[in-house]
Protein backbone atom coordinates (compact mmCIF):
# COMPACT_ATOMS: atom_id res chain seq x y z
CA UNK A 1 0.00 0.00 0.00
CA UNK A 2 1.22 3.40 -0.93
CA UNK A 3 0.10 4.87 2.41
CA UNK A 4 3.05 3.34 4.19
CA UNK A 5 5.52 5.73 5.64
CA UNK A 6 8.27 4.88 8.07
CA UNK A 7 6.95 7.15 10.78
CA UNK A 8 3.21 6.79 10.37
CA UNK A 9 1.92 7.65 13.88
CA UNK A 10 -1.12 5.41 13.45
CA UNK A 11 0.86 2.32 12.54
CA UNK A 12 1.08 -0.09 15.47
CA UNK A 13 4.50 -1.58 16.06
CA UNK A 14 3.48 -5.15 15.34
CA UNK A 15 2.16 -4.55 11.83
CA UNK A 16 4.58 -4.56 8.93
CA UNK A 17 2.74 -1.76 7.13
CA UNK A 18 -0.39 0.41 7.25
CA UNK A 19 -2.06 -1.58 4.50
CA UNK A 20 -1.93 -4.79 6.52
CA UNK A 21 -3.17 -2.91 9.54
CA UNK A 22 -6.14 -1.50 7.63
CA UNK A 23 -7.01 -4.89 6.18
CA UNK A 24 -6.73 -6.56 9.58
CA UNK A 25 -9.04 -3.95 11.08
CA UNK A 26 -11.56 -4.40 8.33
CA UNK A 27 -11.50 -8.21 8.56
CA UNK A 28 -11.87 -7.99 12.31
CA UNK A 29 -14.88 -5.72 11.96
CA UNK A 30 -16.56 -7.98 9.43
CA UNK A 31 -16.08 -10.95 11.74
CA UNK A 32 -17.53 -8.94 14.60
CA UNK A 33 -20.52 -8.04 12.45
CA UNK A 34 -21.00 -11.74 11.73
CA UNK A 35 -21.20 -12.41 15.47
CA UNK A 36 -23.76 -9.62 15.81
CA UNK A 37 -25.89 -11.15 13.10
CA UNK A 38 -25.69 -14.49 14.87
CA UNK A 39 -26.69 -12.84 18.13
CA UNK A 40 -29.86 -11.64 16.44
CA UNK A 41 -30.02 -14.97 14.62
CA UNK A 42 -31.17 -16.66 17.81
CA UNK A 43 -34.12 -14.29 18.02
CA UNK A 44 -34.91 -14.67 14.34
CA UNK A 45 -34.97 -18.44 14.93
CA UNK A 46 -37.35 -18.04 17.86
CA UNK A 47 -39.50 -15.83 15.65
CA UNK A 48 -39.53 -18.42 12.87
CA UNK A 49 -40.39 -21.29 15.21
CA UNK A 50 -43.29 -19.51 16.89
CA UNK A 51 -44.60 -17.99 13.70
CA UNK A 52 -44.59 -21.39 12.00
CA UNK A 53 -46.34 -23.03 14.96
CA UNK A 54 -48.77 -20.24 15.84
CA UNK A 55 -49.33 -18.00 12.79
CA UNK A 56 -52.65 -16.82 14.24
CA UNK A 57 -50.90 -15.09 17.15
CA UNK A 58 -48.73 -13.09 14.81
CA UNK A 59 -51.53 -12.13 12.47
CA UNK A 60 -53.69 -11.03 15.36
CA UNK A 61 -51.08 -9.29 17.48
CA UNK A 62 -49.26 -7.33 14.80
CA UNK A 63 -52.35 -5.14 14.43
CA UNK A 64 -51.35 -3.50 17.69
CA UNK A 65 -48.14 -2.18 16.16
CA UNK A 66 -48.18 1.24 14.51
CA UNK A 67 -47.18 0.77 10.88
CA UNK A 68 -46.84 4.51 10.30
CA UNK A 69 -44.40 5.07 13.13
CA UNK A 70 -42.50 1.92 12.15
CA UNK A 71 -42.36 3.13 8.56
CA UNK A 72 -41.08 6.56 9.57
CA UNK A 73 -38.41 4.92 11.69
CA UNK A 74 -37.34 2.78 8.76
CA UNK A 75 -36.96 5.89 6.65
CA UNK A 76 -35.04 7.63 9.43
CA UNK A 77 -32.53 4.81 9.64
CA UNK A 78 -32.12 4.57 5.88
CA UNK A 79 -31.34 8.28 5.72
CA UNK A 80 -28.91 7.88 8.61
CA UNK A 81 -27.14 5.16 6.66
CA UNK A 82 -26.82 7.58 3.78
CA UNK A 83 -25.33 10.30 5.98
CA UNK A 84 -22.98 7.72 7.49
CA UNK A 85 -21.73 6.49 4.13
CA UNK A 86 -21.32 10.10 3.08
CA UNK A 87 -19.32 10.79 6.23
CA UNK A 88 -16.91 7.99 5.37
CA UNK A 89 -16.51 9.44 1.91
CA UNK A 90 -15.89 12.88 3.41
CA UNK A 91 -13.20 11.41 5.65
CA UNK A 92 -11.53 9.73 2.68
CA UNK A 93 -11.57 12.98 0.76
CA UNK A 94 -10.42 15.00 3.75
CA UNK A 95 -13.50 17.20 3.86
CA UNK A 96 -13.20 18.00 7.50
CA UNK A 97 -16.31 20.13 8.05
CA UNK A 98 -18.55 17.84 6.04
CA UNK A 99 -17.30 14.87 8.04
CA UNK A 100 -18.19 16.49 11.36
CA UNK A 101 -21.59 17.64 10.14
CA UNK A 102 -22.51 14.30 8.63
CA UNK A 103 -21.50 12.42 11.77
CA UNK A 104 -23.58 14.82 13.84
CA UNK A 105 -26.51 14.31 11.48
CA UNK A 106 -26.22 10.53 11.79
CA UNK A 107 -26.23 10.74 15.56
CA UNK A 108 -29.21 13.12 15.46
CA UNK A 109 -31.13 10.66 13.30
CA UNK A 110 -30.30 7.98 15.87
CA UNK A 111 -31.98 10.17 18.49
CA UNK A 112 -35.02 10.61 16.27
CA UNK A 113 -35.26 6.84 15.89
CA UNK A 114 -35.06 6.29 19.63
CA UNK A 115 -37.63 9.03 20.26
CA UNK A 116 -40.15 7.41 17.96
CA UNK A 117 -39.37 4.03 19.50
CA UNK A 118 -40.07 5.55 22.92
CA UNK A 119 -43.47 6.76 21.77
CA UNK A 120 -44.28 3.28 20.51
CA UNK A 121 -43.10 1.57 23.70
CA UNK A 122 -45.03 3.97 25.89
CA UNK A 123 -48.19 3.25 23.98
CA UNK A 124 -47.72 -0.50 24.43
CA UNK A 125 -47.01 -0.02 28.10
CA UNK A 126 -50.23 1.91 28.63
CA UNK A 127 -52.27 -0.66 26.75
CA UNK A 128 -50.76 -3.53 28.68
CA UNK A 129 -49.34 -5.02 25.48
CA UNK A 130 -46.38 -6.43 27.30
CA UNK A 131 -44.57 -9.72 27.14
CA UNK A 132 -45.27 -12.80 29.17
CA UNK A 133 -46.90 -12.48 32.55
CA UNK A 134 -47.12 -8.69 32.32
CA UNK A 135 -49.51 -8.94 29.41
CA UNK A 136 -52.73 -7.33 30.62
CA UNK A 137 -54.38 -6.03 27.49
CA UNK A 138 -58.12 -6.45 28.09
CA UNK A 139 -59.45 -6.88 24.58
CA UNK A 140 -56.80 -9.38 23.66
CA UNK A 141 -56.54 -11.38 26.82
CA UNK A 142 -58.54 -14.57 26.99
CA UNK A 143 -61.20 -13.91 29.64
CA UNK A 144 -59.93 -16.49 32.10
CA UNK A 145 -56.37 -15.23 31.89
CA UNK A 146 -57.23 -11.64 32.75
CA UNK A 147 -55.61 -11.96 36.13
CA UNK A 148 -51.89 -11.87 35.34
CA UNK A 149 -50.95 -13.78 38.46
CA UNK A 150 -52.72 -16.89 37.26
CA UNK A 151 -51.85 -17.53 33.64
CA UNK A 152 -53.38 -21.00 33.79
CA UNK A 153 -57.07 -20.64 33.08
CA UNK A 154 -58.53 -23.41 35.17
CA UNK A 155 -61.47 -25.06 33.46
CA UNK A 156 -64.74 -24.58 35.33
CA UNK A 157 -65.12 -28.30 35.79
CA UNK A 158 -61.85 -28.53 37.66
CA UNK A 159 -62.52 -25.63 39.98
CA UNK A 160 -64.59 -27.61 42.46
CA UNK A 161 -62.64 -29.12 45.31
CA UNK A 162 -64.44 -32.39 44.98
CA UNK A 163 -63.64 -32.83 41.34
CA UNK A 164 -63.03 -36.36 40.23
CA UNK A 165 -60.73 -35.19 37.49
CA UNK A 166 -57.35 -36.66 38.19
CA UNK A 167 -54.21 -34.57 37.75
CA UNK A 168 -52.97 -36.08 34.54
CA UNK A 169 -56.37 -36.04 32.96
CA UNK A 170 -56.45 -32.28 33.31
CA UNK A 171 -54.57 -30.36 30.68
CA UNK A 172 -51.23 -29.29 32.02
CA UNK A 173 -50.54 -25.62 32.33
CA UNK A 174 -50.15 -24.07 28.94
CA UNK A 175 -52.18 -26.54 26.90
CA UNK A 176 -55.46 -25.39 25.55
CA UNK A 177 -58.46 -26.85 27.24
CA UNK A 178 -61.63 -27.31 25.20
CA UNK A 179 -63.69 -24.78 27.15
CA UNK A 180 -61.29 -21.88 26.64
CA UNK A 181 -60.74 -22.86 23.04
CA UNK A 182 -64.39 -22.28 22.31
CA UNK A 183 -64.30 -18.94 24.10
CA UNK A 184 -61.40 -17.89 21.92
CA UNK A 185 -63.33 -18.61 18.81
CA UNK A 186 -66.12 -16.34 19.94
CA UNK A 187 -63.71 -13.46 20.56
CA UNK A 188 -61.39 -14.28 17.66
CA UNK A 189 -58.52 -13.74 20.06
CA UNK A 190 -55.86 -16.43 19.87
CA UNK A 191 -54.30 -17.77 23.05
CA UNK A 192 -50.84 -16.72 24.14
CA UNK A 193 -50.77 -13.36 22.38
CA UNK A 194 -48.11 -12.41 24.92
CA UNK A 195 -45.64 -14.58 23.01
CA UNK A 196 -45.70 -12.11 20.13
CA UNK A 197 -44.93 -9.23 22.45
CA UNK A 198 -42.19 -11.25 24.11
CA UNK A 199 -40.54 -11.59 20.73
CA UNK A 200 -41.34 -8.01 19.70
CA UNK A 201 -39.78 -6.50 22.79
CA UNK A 202 -36.77 -8.84 22.75
CA UNK A 203 -35.98 -8.05 19.13
CA UNK A 204 -36.63 -4.33 19.10
CA UNK A 205 -35.14 -3.94 22.58
CA UNK A 206 -31.91 -5.64 21.60
CA UNK A 207 -31.88 -3.57 18.42
CA UNK A 208 -32.40 -0.36 20.39
CA UNK A 209 -29.44 -1.28 22.62
CA UNK A 210 -27.39 -1.66 19.45
CA UNK A 211 -28.56 1.73 18.18
CA UNK A 212 -27.44 3.29 21.45
CA UNK A 213 -24.09 1.49 21.28
CA UNK A 214 -23.67 2.71 17.70
CA UNK A 215 -24.46 6.29 18.72
CA UNK A 216 -21.93 6.18 21.55
CA UNK A 217 -19.32 4.93 19.09
CA UNK A 218 -20.21 7.68 16.65
CA UNK A 219 -19.98 10.30 19.38
CA UNK A 220 -16.46 9.14 20.08
CA UNK A 221 -15.66 9.23 16.38
CA UNK A 222 -17.22 12.69 16.15
CA UNK A 223 -14.95 13.94 18.94
CA UNK A 224 -11.90 12.59 17.22
CA UNK A 225 -13.08 14.01 13.89
CA UNK A 226 -13.59 17.42 15.45
CA UNK A 227 -9.96 17.31 16.55
CA UNK A 228 -9.02 16.65 12.95
CA UNK A 229 -7.60 13.17 13.46
CA UNK A 230 -8.99 11.73 10.25
CA UNK A 231 -8.02 12.32 6.68
CA UNK A 232 -7.29 10.52 3.44
CA UNK A 233 -4.39 8.67 5.07
CA UNK A 234 -6.15 7.51 8.18
CA UNK A 235 -9.88 6.94 8.28
CA UNK A 236 -10.12 3.34 9.53
CA UNK A 237 -12.18 4.14 12.68
CA UNK A 238 -14.74 6.11 10.65
CA UNK A 239 -14.98 3.28 8.16
CA UNK A 240 -15.42 0.61 10.84
CA UNK A 241 -17.97 2.60 12.82
CA UNK A 242 -19.82 3.12 9.55
CA UNK A 243 -19.91 -0.64 8.94
CA UNK A 244 -21.37 -1.14 12.38
CA UNK A 245 -24.01 1.53 11.83
CA UNK A 246 -25.04 -0.01 8.52
CA UNK A 247 -25.47 -3.37 10.23
CA UNK A 248 -27.75 -1.83 12.85
CA UNK A 249 -29.83 -0.31 10.03
CA UNK A 250 -29.88 -3.54 8.13
CA UNK A 251 -31.23 -5.49 11.08
CA UNK A 252 -34.05 -2.98 11.43
CA UNK A 253 -34.85 -3.33 7.76
CA UNK A 254 -35.53 -7.02 8.48
CA UNK A 255 -37.33 -6.39 11.76
CA UNK A 256 -39.79 -3.90 10.28
CA UNK A 257 -41.54 -6.20 7.79
CA UNK A 258 -41.25 -9.26 10.06
CA UNK A 259 -43.00 -7.55 12.95
CA UNK A 260 -45.13 -4.78 11.45
CA UNK A 261 -46.16 -6.03 8.02
CA UNK A 262 -47.60 -9.49 8.58
CA UNK A 263 -50.29 -10.96 6.38
Amino acid sequence: MSQTTPHDPHLAHHFPDAGTQFEAGKLGMWIFLATEILLFGGLFCAYAVYRANHPEIFIYAHQFLDKVLGGINTAVLIVSSLTMAWAVRAAQLGHQRALVRLLAATIALGFVFLGIKYVEYEHKWKEGLLPGKRFTHQAAAPPAAAAPADPDPAPVAAAGDSSVIAPAARGPAGLASPSTASQEKAHKVPRNVQIFFGIYFSMTGLHAIHVIAGMITLLWILRRAARGEFGPRYFTPVDLAGLYWHLVDLIWIYLFPLLYLIH
Binding site: A46, G132, P172, A173, Q194, G198
Partner: peptide, 20 residues
Amino acid sequence: LIIAERLLGVGIFDPALGGD
Protein backbone atom coordinates in the same frame (compact mmCIF):
# COMPACT_ATOMS: atom_id res chain seq x y z
CA LEU B 1 -33.37 -14.49 27.09
CA ILE B 2 -33.04 -16.41 30.37
CA ILE B 3 -32.26 -13.15 32.12
CA ALA B 4 -35.19 -11.45 30.39
CA GLU B 5 -37.37 -14.36 31.39
CA ARG B 6 -36.41 -14.10 35.05
CA LEU B 7 -36.43 -10.30 35.25
CA LEU B 8 -39.30 -9.42 32.96
CA GLY B 9 -41.23 -12.66 32.56
CA VAL B 10 -40.94 -12.54 28.80
CA GLY B 11 -42.16 -16.11 28.55
CA ILE B 12 -40.43 -17.30 25.40
CA PHE B 13 -39.32 -20.50 27.15
CA ASP B 14 -42.12 -20.67 29.72
CA PRO B 15 -44.79 -23.29 28.99
CA ALA B 16 -47.21 -21.57 31.36
CA LEU B 17 -47.14 -18.53 29.05
CA GLY B 18 -47.27 -20.47 25.80
CA GLY B 19 -43.50 -20.69 25.41
CA ASP B 20 -41.47 -23.76 24.55
